[in-house]
């Protein structure tokens, strides 16, 4: 039974083309470790170097988004650390002739509208539009409540040569589940 379940899970992942999957707390140490593993994996598979760079870059932005923004977290006082731990799911894979980097995490309901409109705006932009927004965001002030440069999504969109998709699913009154998949 134990092996059956795990084998079924492995089959599900393979069916979706997933070659790498992580679910758990995302920390900077985890980012370093998985990052090196992904680099190694792409080297072994002889992925085109520039494609590998885009995949890696999207991976970094996705994971740093989870580390900074995931609403599913353990408060610092419980783990006795300065920073809280944030939870997310990450998959990297290859299907239908394109690579994908997919990431999911809980977000607060009050942030959903802002994320939707910002991602919708980015999705509608062409290459030049993305370039302009990238620069504007780098120069301007980071959006309210943002702990990073606020330019991560634009960077993902610029590198996702086959585009990106995002989706939200309501969980309860307080949270929604947010997922973003970028294609290279």
């Amino acid at each position: 039974m134990l092996a059956d379940n795990m084998y079924a899970f492995r089959g599900q992942l393979q069916e979706q083309g997933v070659v790498f999957c992580y679910s758990g707390y995302m920390t900077e140490e985890v980012l370093t470790g998985i990052g090196n593993a992904i680099k190694k994996m792409m080297e072994l598979e002889e992925t085109d170097r520039m494609v590998a760079k885009d995949i890696f870059s999207i991976f970094v932005e996705q994971v740093q988004n989870v580390i900074r923004y995931s609403a599913e977290h353990v408060p610092p006082k419980i783990i006795g650390q300065e920073k809280e731990l944030r939870y997310g799911v990450l998959t990297v894979g290859y299907k239908d002739g394109r690579y994908f980097v997919s990431c999911g995490n809980l977000v607060r309901q009050e942030d959903v509208a802002r994320l939707k409109s910002s991602l919708g705006h980015i999705k509608a932009l062409d290459k030049d539009g993305l370039k302009a927004l990238y620069k504007e965001t780098l120069k301007g002030e980071a959006p309210k409540r943002s702990k990073g440069a606020g330019v991560g999504f634009v960077d993902i969109a610029r590198r996702a040569v086959h585009g990106f998709e995002f989706d939200f699913s309501g969980v309860d009154d307080n949270y929604s589940y947010f997922c973003l998949t970028a294609y290279v």
Partner: peptide, 12 residues
């Protein structure tokens, strides 16, 4: 060789 978006802000 590679920099992330937070570094891009610093470079600007």
């Amino acid at each position: 060789i590679y920099f992330n978006s937070s570094t891009a802000k610093v470079l600007m």
